[in-house]
Design a protein around this nucleic acid. Structure first.
Lengths: 155, 155
DNA sequence: ATAGTTTTTGCGACTCGTTCGCAGTTACGC
DNA sequence: GCGTAACTGCGAACGAGTCGCAAAAACTAT
């Protein structure tokens, strides 16, 4: 088991650390709960509740969809999980750490995942102008990606 | 009938101009369609399909919800209407002209409506850094509004 | 190990926002 | 006015998510 010494909010943590965080809150480490965690640990991007319930196409045992939703909610309350709404379609869930922000292309629906610092310049601009502290973790920054811009230019 | 010499995409147009645009496409100006247009013309902000169907709380005749959705879709295809997803909750519809962009507070759900130019500096920053052309018309720029920032600071 | 307590599960039924199918109606072109 | 699209209004269905509830599993104290 790999141990990180950075804060759970910033760095990836292990499944066992996650279970520990649950126990501290009086929550139980049920099989279904662990499955949700394992799915999120094993995924290389945000997952829908449905894909988790289906066990990532057979790579894990399947589980009940309503329970998956409940567990995702619980894990989110504990701060282990986050969800993002990438345009239409179901909400997508990922480990809260490390924290990512998202850019979504309105035209081709491509998603670019970036570290928070990369957006700090844009954030500063918005903050200065509007007083808003922009966050693209729960809803992405939406626009046209480079590919779709050039496509629309060549017409 | 008032004629504008600016593009419909930029300036507000009248109901009769809207009907004209429909006719040019072989579409009909049915009573239900006109009602949708009138609701949007009379509103001071984006409306849900449901409020349109209910005739803005009695100010207009009520109409069938499915038809309202179909008409909003048609009007959007013609370019007269736009919809925006302000966080959770139903989609909200407004006249496409004049074009607005939106800032949404993730905490108190307040919505700030701004003219596109106001966002050009932020857009330029994002464009330079990521090549994305950010647009906050269909999905808002999400973050914490000034009020919620100070509230979270005083703790 | 075991009983007791409390959380969690799995199921189905339900909500909300939205779309679809389809028979009947209405708008426009002649 | 008459024919032929387009459009309406209805109800049923949809996808995403939530809720109620009895049965099962996880931790606790013994």
């Amino acid at each position: 088991m790999t141990t990180t010494h950075r804060s759970p909010a910033l760095a990836a943590i292990s499944v066992e650390e996650a279970v520990e965080a649950l126990r501290e809150r009086g929550l139980r480490a049920s099989a279904a709960r662990r499955l949700v965690l394992e799915a999120l640990y094993g995924a290389d991007g945000p997952l829908s509740a449905e894909r988790v319930a289906e066990g990532l196409e057979g790579r894990l045992p399947r589980s009940d969809l309503a329970s998956v939703y409940r567990n995702l909610e619980t894990l989110e309350e504990v701060g282990l999980v986050r969800h993002v709404h990438l345009g239409h379609g179901p909400g997508l869930y990922a480990l809260a750490a490390p924290e990512h922000e998202y850019l979504l292309c309105e035209s081709c629906h491509a998603v670019r995942t970036v570290a928070s610092e990369e957006l700090d310049a844009a954030r500063a601009q918005v903050r200065e102008q509007f007083g808003y502290e922009a966050r693209f973790t729960h809803f992405p920054l939406v626009g046209l990606c480079p590919d779709c811009i050039s496509e629309s230019h060549e017409h």
